[in-house]
Structures are given as C-alpha cells and as structure tokens.
Amino acid sequence: MSEHHHHEQLNKISDINDIKLFLVIILNFGISFFEIIGGILSGSVSLFSDAMHNFSDGLSVLISYIAIKIQNKKNDEKRTFGYKRSGIISAFINSLILIFISLFLFKEAYERFLHPANINSSIIISVAFLATIANFLGVLLLHKGSRENMNIKSSYLHLLGDTLSSIGVIIAGILIFLFHKNWVDPFIAVLIGMYILKESFDILKNSTNILFEGVPNNIDIYKIVEEIKKIDGVIDVHHVHIWCLNEDNINFEAHVDVEDVLISHTKKIIDEIEEKLKRFGINHVTIQFEHNFCVGVGVIKN
C-alpha cells in the first residue's frame, strides 16, 4: 500500500511538471517572436540576440518536456530499467547548449565593445520589460521542480538566465537612453554569461557522472562497506558497484561473505543491509551471498 501511494505521488509530481514545462515552452517561443519583431523595429542587436537566446532555451525546454514523457514510460522486456535515463540525457544536452549560449554571449559582448550599436532605447526597454515578466513567470513555474529534478533544474536555469538577460537589456536600454553608455550592454552580457557558464558546468559534471555510472558525489563507498560489515553474520563485502539510473534511483550491488548459515537466515541480513543503505539514499539493492568463496578479493573488482 505504501509503495503504491509513493508511485501515485511521483506520477502527480511528474504531471504537474509536464504542465508547467508546456506553459514555459509557450512563453519562451512567444517571447522570442516579440523580441525578434522588436529587434527589427529598434535596430537592436542585443534585443535580437536575446530573442535567439530565448528561442534556443525554448528548444531546450522542449527537449526536457519530451524527456519527461519518455521517462514516464513503463519498464518492458527490452528496457528492464525503463527509460529513466532520458531525463539525465536531456540535462546533459541542455548543459551543453547552455555552455554554447554563454560562449555566444561572450562573443557578442566582445563585438559590441568594439562596435557599439545604435538602438531605439524606447522599443528595447518596452520589449525587454515584457520579456522579463514572461521569463520570471517561467522561473516561478519551475522553481519548486528544479530542487527535485536535474532535468527541470537545467530548464529552470535557462529561464533564470533569460530573466537576468532581459533585465540586463532593460538596464542597458535605460542607461543608453539617459547617458548614452553603450558599453553597459556588453558588460551585463558578460556577467550573465559567466553565471550561466558556472551553473551549466555543474549540471554537465553531475549528468556526465550518472551517464558513466559513477558513484554519486555524496556517497563514500568504503564507509558503506564498513557499515555493512558491522552486521552480525557478515564477514566481508566485495565486488561493490554503486551507480544511478537518475537522480532518484541509486543502485547498489555487491558480494557479501557470510558465516555458514541457512539461506532462510540471510533474510534478516538483507533487511539490515537495505535499512542501512536507505540512509545513503540507496533504494535498489542486489546482494550475492557467499561463504568463503571469493577470499582476498577487494572492495572494487579490477
């Protein structure tokens, strides 16, 4: 009953994220359309660049949306773990897009430092203000989900970057209008690019670790082994593997050397192992029990 309720709760969370992502996609493409028109009318390179920024982010959020749909498909005989990795693949792709966007912003900023653009500041301020409101609504929609899911977080960071970018365009437009300070536009673009670059590298690092089936950063494999060896009846633990399917599913498998006991007595040992591993966030455990079979084998199999 408890497990069934847990799955229902996860499905409800997923459905809410689906709806929010769909609304964000509409917002992003809508913003892009109005900023392209505004960029053409005002002659603003920065506004047009911000439109491309929003459009690329809309595509990235669309990738996230599709990934969540795929991720929710049930396990089958061909995919016994299901499609849970799709969200991580999406986060990986999104982080790469974020890095390229940051590099693009740096390039644009450099060119604007060298060749400041003359723009109609009234149009750029008005359009960027509307874009800021729309992007901020998207940030609010995804804020909660970004703390629970790496895929949602990557989309959230896209929108946060868009919001900061739009605010930067507004500030630049105001300063250009009042003081003709054209250098402010590329300066703000560099600051935004640095922030996005830092956050995107964090996502890239975490998603790559999961795709390479690495041990989660917050887990000490030798500490876990020592905890299991404290269980009455356990002699040794070796051939240990810890990896993630995604952020919510951490798998553990190992050979556990036990005293000469009946198979029925291993039920108590496995229950204790699972209870200890829950403290580390591990929720899928596979144990191969042995008795003096792999003597002298290390924790990690080479």
Results as ranks from 00 to 15, higher is better:
13 I>K: 15
268 K>P: 10
280 F>K: 06
269 I>H: 04
32 S>M: 15
59 L>K: 06
284 H>T: 07
217 N>H: 13
237 V>M: 04
69 K>C: 12
49 S>I: 05
148 E>R: 08
279 R>A: 14
257 D>A: 12
277 L>P: 08
66 I>F: 15
54 N>Y: 01
107 K>D: 14
171 I>R: 00
203 I>Q: 07
196 I>N: 00
300 I>D: 12
68 I>M: 10
167 I>M: 00
166 S>W: 02
154 S>G: 07
164 L>G: 09
232 D>V: 10
266 T>E: 01
209 N>W: 03
265 H>M: 14
95 S>N: 09
216 P>T: 01
296 G>M: 10
4 H>I: 14
139 V>G: 00
43 G>W: 03
152 I>R: 01
268 K>G: 05
2 S>L: 13
257 D>Y: 11
169 V>E: 02
301 K>E: 14
302 N>P: 00
109 A>P: 06
293 F>N: 13
126 S>N: 10
286 T>M: 08
35 E>M: 14
237 V>I: 11
88 I>H: 00
214 G>H: 02
288 Q>Y: 03
219 I>S: 05
4 H>N: 14
138 G>N: 04
235 I>C: 14
294 C>S: 14
210 I>E: 01
208 T>F: 12
24 V>L: 05
182 N>W: 12
198 K>A: 15
183 W>P: 10
21 L>S: 04
134 A>C: 05
66 I>L: 15
119 I>Y: 03
129 F>R: 00
55 F>V: 04
222 Y>S: 14
45 V>W: 08
175 L>A: 15
156 Y>L: 05
21 L>V: 01
267 K>F: 11
50 D>T: 06
91 A>Y: 01
19 I>N: 14
214 G>D: 01
115 H>V: 11
32 S>K: 06
115 H>Q: 13
35 E>C: 09
119 I>V: 15
90 S>P: 03
60 S>I: 06
228 I>N: 00
75 N>W: 09
274 E>L: 01
23 L>Y: 14
91 A>H: 02
213 E>R: 06
72 N>F: 07
48 F>D: 06
270 I>W: 03
81 F>W: 04
281 G>Q: 08
188 I>E: 03
192 I>T: 06
194 M>P: 12
150 M>N: 10
111 E>R: 10
241 H>P: 02
102 S>N: 06
88 I>S: 02
299 V>R: 08
267 K>V: 11
127 V>D: 05
54 N>S: 12
224 I>C: 01
262 L>D: 14
294 C>M: 13
102 S>I: 09
280 F>C: 07
70 I>K: 02
145 G>T: 11
140 L>Y: 08
180 H>C: 13
52 M>I: 10
175 L>R: 03
161 G>I: 03
171 I>H: 04
